[in-house]
């Protein structure tokens, strides 16, 4: 099964490792989704068709907080916008057209992009991207089903702390992005603005509005300085 070329084999093994580790946490999405009031079908359709973890967690998070489903949709799509930028970076190396592009697009997520762009050439980019993307897709969906069925069988999600697991999941997704001060500042502003908006607006709105305010503040505060520092 594994390629005979040593470099290729390493790419495949690394991609499988990332794919398995990431796909496994589909179980937490499934459990959280049913704990948030979705049924098993809805949880599985989200993993099959949305297939981008942060957006899926955002959708169920907003719904769990009592927000309108379409507010959940808006949050999910805003979060999914980064996948468009991943696609822009990937397309010169992937070189996919026609129906292949339509299939490939579905696999454009954080992990497949990171593994793909980490390779030295276009051929290994394709290899890493595909192995990572397909592994995650298969496992993520299987584990979502497992988590969703288990979550429904468990009963009251609060007794197991599953409602608290959502915040931890978002923090774990956020954590690796807090690498520098502009990002940390944006995170603090986003959290603060959202909390401030909770008593004032309908559920679901604080997240979108708070997140947007944070991005605007981040752009205003970090823009000129970052531009001057650029070589």
């Amino acid at each position: 099964m594994l390629p005979t070329d040593n470099g290729d084999r390493k790419v495949v093994v690394d991609s499988l490792g990332v794919g398995i580790a990431t796909g496994a946490y589909g179980v937490s999405f499934g459990a959280v989704a049913t704990a948030s009031g979705l049924d098993v079908w809805q949880a599985c359709v989200l993993s099959l068709l949305v297939f981008t973890g942060a957006s899926q967690f955002a959708f169920v998070g907003v719904v769990a907080a009592g927000g309108a489903p379409l507010a959940g949709t808006a949050t999910a799509v805003l979060l999914g916008s980064r996948n468009a930028f991943y696609g822009v970076a990937l397309s010169p190396r992937l070189q996919v057209h026609g129906w292949r592009r339509l299939l490939t697009a579905h696999l454009v997520i954080d992990e497949s992009t990171a593994m793909g762009l980490g390779q030295p050439d276009a051929r290994r980019t394709r290899l890493a991207f595909r192995v990572t993307g397909v592994t995650i897709f298969v496992l993520w969906n299987l584990m979502t089903l497992v988590g969703a069925v288990a979550g429904e069988a468990l009963g009251d999600p609060r007794a197991y702390g599953l409602d608290a697991a959502v915040g931890a999941a978002f923090l774990a997704l956020l954590w690796p992005r807090l690498t520098a001060w502009p990002q940390r500042l944006v995170a603090v502003v986003g959290a603060g603005a959202a909390v401030g908006l909770v008593p004032l607006t309908a559920a679901g709105v604080p997240v979108i509005l708070g997140g947007t305010v944070a991005v605007v503040v981040g752009m205003l505060l970090t823009g000129p300085r970052t531009a001057e520092e650029a070589p």
Binding site: A54, F57, A58, G61, A64, A65, T75, L78, L79, S81, R82, A84, F85, V166, G167, F170, L171, L173, L174, R177, L178, P182, Q183, V186, A187, V188, V189, G190, A191, G192, A193, A194, V195, V198, P206, V207, I208, G210, G211, T212, V213, A214, V215, G218, M219
Partner: peptide, 16 residues
């Protein structure tokens, strides 16, 4: 594009 997930995820953590 880089800031959107940071702002939204932080807001989600806080609200959640």
């Amino acid at each position: 594009a880089a800031l959107i997930p940071v702002g939204l995820l932080a807001a989600l953590v806080a609200v959640q």
